[in-house]
Design a protein around this nucleic acid. Structure first.
Lengths: 342, 342
DNA sequence: GTTAGCACTCAACGTCATCGAGTGCTAACG
DNA sequence: CGTTAGCACTCGATGACGTTGAGTGCTAAC
C-alpha cells in the first residue's frame, strides 16, 4: 500500500492535533477541523490504513489514534510546514542573549535560558570541545607557598584554570618569567597539539623541568577528561513537568536524573559538526531513559574551528517547527556573539 | 499545661516515626514500637494534649497525628539525638571531595554532589561573596583587535574574567605592561576596596585613562551583581521527587522552579557568617514556594575573611540528625580543602 | 469511492457499600 | 488517681458496579 496525497494530509492533521493536545485523535475531530472535507467514516478507513502501515497506533480499541515514531519521522522529513520566527521575536531573543555578554560562560548560560523560555522545553548547551581551541595566553599566578594557579586563556575567550604545585624557591617574578616563556611557546597552538609543543619545551628546558612536567600533565588531564561539568549547561529543567507525559513522577524523576548526568548529556548531544539542525526522535537516541523524548540539536561556531552544540529535549510530540526555528536562529546568533571575541 | 518527660518521649517517638514513614502516626504504633511501655489509650490522651498545645495536628478525625512546625522546632532544639558520622563515611566523602580538586569550582561542584548523595536531599552551595576576596593578579590578554580578556585571580583561587574593549593601537606588550601595573597596584586589595584603589590609579594615570575606566566598571559590575549564576551550585535536584510529599507534580514543579532561580537561592541561603549549622523549618524561611520545606545551612571558609554557605533543602520531615552531621562535616572539609589554596 | 447508520468496545466517572485504622469517651482496675 | 480495656463512632481508602460517551469497524445505501 502506498501513501497518497490524502493520507499525507490526514496524517499531518492528526500529528498537528496530537502535538497540541496530547490526546488520542478521533476521526470526527479530523473531519471537522482539517480542511480535508471528508466524513468521519472516510477518515476512519484511511486511519485504519495508516495504522496498518505503522504510522498510527491505538492505545485501546475505543480510543482515537496516536502517531508512532515512524509518523513523527515522516512528519519532520516531509510533512511539517516550517515557519520563520517573527523579527520581533528574533530581536527579543538576541537582546536577552547579549544582555550579559561580558563573559563567554555568561553568554552560554543566557542562551540556555533563552532557548528554554522560547520553546518551553528543556535546553542543553555543550561548550566547544577544548581540543580545538587555541591557546592565547598562559599565566602562572602564585596563590601560596609552592602552589600556583595556572590560567589558560583560549582564543574563544574561554578560561580554564587549575592549581598546580611548583618547586620550592620560585617567587612571583620567576613565575612571571615562566609564564612569558610558556605563552611565547604555546601561543596559537591548538590545545590538541600542546603535548608536542610541551615535549619540545621540556627537552630544551635546562631548568624547571618538574614544573613544566606538571603543567603539561594538568593540561592533558583537562583535555582527556573532555572538560568538566561546567561546560554542559542545562536550562528550564522544570519546563518538562508542564506536559502531561511527565505527570507520572517516576518518569519525571528519571528524566531529571539524566539532566544531572553531564556525561550522558555530552555524549547525547555529541558534536555533529555541521550547522544543520539534527533531529532524533524517541528510540533514535541512545539513552534509554530518553526513549520517549525527542532531541533536536544544532551547532554553533567559535572562531574558525571550534564548534559547540545546542539542543532542546522535549516529548516526542514536541512542536518541531517552532523548536527548529528557534535552534536555527540561536545557533547563528550564538556563533555571531561568540565570534566577536575571536 | 506543661510538657513533662513522658510527653517529650512520646512526641519524639511520633516525630521519629513520621520522619521515616511520612504517614500520620497512630497511638497503637507508638505504644508498640517505642520503649515507652504504655497502652494506646494512654498515648491517645497524651497525644490529645500535645495536639491542644500545638505540637500535633490531625489531617482528619480518623487519622493519626502529624507533627506541626512547632514540633519540629522543639525536636531539633531539644529532642533530637545527634550522632556522628562513621569514620568510614567521612573518609568516603572526603575522598570524593578531593577527587577533582584541581579547580575551586570543581571542588564546590563535587561538594554539592557529595552532599546530595549523602543525604538524598537537594544541596545548594553558594560560593564566597566576591567582595571579601583579595586580588592576587590581574591580567589583560588580547583576544582580538581592540578587545581584551581581563582575568582576575583572587586569593581563594577563584578566577573571574570579562571581555573589555581596549583603545586602538595597544599591542600585546602594552597590555602586558598594563597588567603588571594593575597587578602591582591592586594586589592584596579586597575587591570591595578596589574602587578606591582604582580611583587613585586613574588620577595618576597620564595615559590609558579610558582603558582603566572600563576595567573599573567591569570589576564593579561584577561586585554589585553579587556574582553571576555560576556561584550558586545545585546538586541532586531530582532527589526530592523520591519523597511522597512531592508526588504532586505541581509541587514538584514549583520546587524545581525555585532551584532554577539562582537569585532566590542566594537570598535564601544568605551568609550567616558563623560556622554554626542553622535550621529553618517550613514557614520560617522567606520563600513562599518553600514553605513546606526545611532548609539547613552551614558555612565554609576560604582564606581568612571569605565565607560561603552550603545547605540542604528537603521536606520538613527530613532526617535532621543526618543532615546536620553531614553539613557540619562537609563545612569543615570544604574549608580545609579550599584553604590549602590560600 | 463516499457516507450514513448501527452495534460494539472500553476508559472514565460517579455511586454505593465495605473495611479498617484510628479516635474519644466511659467505666473498671490496681 | 493514673492507667487501661472496651466500645461506639468517624472517615478515607478500596473495590464492585452501572452509566456515559467518545471512538471504532462493518455493512449497506447513495
Amino acid at each position: 500500500m502506498q501513501l497518497d496525497e490524502r493520507k499525507y494530509r490526514i496524517l499531518q492533521a492528526i500529528i498537528d492535533d496530537y502535538i497540541m493536545t496530547a490526546m488520542p485523535v478521533g476521526s470526527r475531530t479530523i473531519s471537522r477541523k482539517s480542511g480535508v472535507g471528508f466524513s468521519p467514516a472516510t477518515i476512519r478507513n484511511e486511519m485504519s490504513d495508516l495504522e496498518e502501515l505503522g504510522y498510527l497506533a491505538q492505545p485501546h480499541t475505543s480510543a482515537g489514534r496516536v502517531p508512532s515514531y515512524k509518523a513523527y519521522r515522516l512528519y519532520v522529513d516531509h510533512l511539517m510546514k516550517t515557519s520563520k520566527l517573527t523579527s520581533d521575536e528574533r530581536e527579543r531573543m538576541h537582546e536577552h542573549l547579549i544582555s550579559r555578554s561580558k563573559q563567554v560562560e555568561g553568554v552560554i548560560r543566557s542562551a540556555a535560558n533563552v532557548l528554554s523560555d522560547a520553546t518551553k522545553y528543556t535546553s542543553v548547551i555543550v561548550a566547544p570541545k577544548l581540543g580545538t581551541l587555541r591557546i592565547k595566553h598562559v599565566q602562572l599566578v602564585p596563590v601560596a607557598e609552592r602552589t600556583a594557579l595556572m590560567v589558560i586563556v583560549t582564543n574563544a575567550g574561554i578560561v580554564k584554570d587549575a592549581i598546580i604545585r611548583v618547586p620550592e624557591g620560585l617567587d612571583a617574578d620567576d613565575l612571571y618569567g615562566i609564564s612569558r616563556i610558556l605563552t611565547q611557546r604555546l601561543a596559537d597552538q591548538p590545545l590538541e597539539g600542546v603535548r608536542q609543543a610541551f615535549a619540545d619545551l621540556l627537552r630544551n628546558a635546562e631548568q624547571n623541568r618538574r614544573l613544566l612536567g606538571e603543567a603539561l600533565q594538568v593540561i592533558e588531564q583537562r583535555l582527556e577528561a573532555g572538560g568538566d561539568a561546567s561546560d554542559v549547561i542545562v536550562g528550564g529543567s522544570a519546563n518538562l513537568l508542564e506536559y502531561p507525559e511527565y505527570s507520572d513522577v517516576n518518569k519525571a524523576r528519571s528524566f531529571l536524573s539524566v539532566l544531572e548526568s553531564k556525561d550522558t548529556l555530552r555524549k547525547l548531544l555529541g558534536s555533529q559538526g555541521s550547522m544543520e539542525v539534527s533531529i532524533r526522535i524517541g528510540p533514535e537516541n541512545q539513552v534509554p531513559e530518553l526513549n520517549d523524548c525527542s532531541i533536536v540539536t544544532a551547532s554553533y561556531r567559535v572562531g574558525d574551528h571550534s564548534t559547540g552544540t545546542l539542543g532542546i529535549i522535549g516529548p516526542t510530540r514536541m512542536n518541531y517547527n517552532r523548536v527548529i526555528s528557534v535552534l536555527d536562529f540561536m545557533g547563528r546568533a550564538l556563533s555571531d556573539v561568540l565570534s566577536e571575541y575571536k
